[in-house]
């Protein structure tokens, strides 16, 4: 099979996982290389020059976070973390260290593909468009207008800024820290309650049913993403 699509590097020590990822991703048109250790992963990141890295946090030789740090020293390549539920804190640290997104094992293929697409789109600058569409929502950056089914929704400045940050990273998780830093400034990066209040307000304006949001999705303990 000849693949000329984006190049994906998989770093995971579990051969079973590597096998199924290799098969599934190449079937979706990606060019895949897989390695089992952090060292090999760092080497391959230089040699293979991937467009995206899928990184398991529990590697036998180097700490997953260390791999993220070393990669980020010289590369902006998107990194998607594979984690398990019990590594909640490590996952957040990895995201704050520069990883782009995560999926929790066990994950569905659809979920991983969506993350990969969002991360690649972000790199390609696909979001640098004046108007973005999310189902019934339309965000017009030029006129700073948000409409739902054609009806304009009035947002305060802060609310708009939150939505804008989520929208230009559409599909990607934004950690509490990064959102707080972007909207309120670095000295507020631990004030999660600000986000709780504002996201609640925004949902009441944007979502049909704020209890079952479809656009602004909470990633518990991690952050939010806009779909």
């Amino acid at each position: 099979m000849e693949n000329n699509g984006p190049r994906i590097l998989i770093i995971d020590d579990e051969t079973q996982i590597r096998r199924f990822l290799r098969v599934a991703l190449s079937s979706h048109g990606y060019l895949v290389k897989d390695v089992g250790t952090g060292k090999e992963g760092l080497d391959a990141a230089a040699m293979f020059s991937p467009d995206l890295v899928v990184l398991d946090l529990g590697l036998p030789d180097i700490d997953g976070i260390e791999v993220v740090r070393q990669l980020r020293e010289w590369s902006k390549v998107p990194i998607i973390i594979l984690s398990v539920k019990e590594q909640e804190q490590v996952k957040i640290t990895a995201l704050d260290c520069g990883a782009d997104d995560y999926v929790t094992k066990p994950f569905g293929m659809g979920e991983l593909l969506a993350r990969i697409r969002a991360a690649l789109r972000h790199v390609s600058g696909a979001e640098e468009q004046p108007v973005l569409q999310f189902g019934d929502l339309t965000i017009d950056f030029v006129h700073r207008r948000i409409t739902r089914d054609g009806n304009e929704i009035k947002l305060t400045l802060t609310e708009y800024e939150l939505v804008r940050n989520l929208a230009i990273n559409a599909g990607k998780v934004l950690t509490h820290k990064s959102l707080l830093r972007a909207v309120w400034g670095p000295s507020y990066e631990n004030e999660v309650q600000y986000l709780r209040v504002y996201i609640g307000q925004i949902r009441r304006k944007l979502e049909h049913d704020p209890s079952r949001p479809r656009h602004i999705i909470t990633e518990p303990g991690v952050g939010y993403r806009l779909l």
Binding site: V192, R196, G200, R203, P210, S211, R212, P213, T218
Partner: peptide, 17 residues
């Protein structure tokens, strides 16, 4: 316990999802 400010309405949405 990793306590932080939680919005129960938000959490119930996540749980249903």
């Amino acid at each position: 316990l990793n306590k932080e400010w939680c919005d129960l309405q938000d959490i119930i949405g996540v749980a249903i999802n």
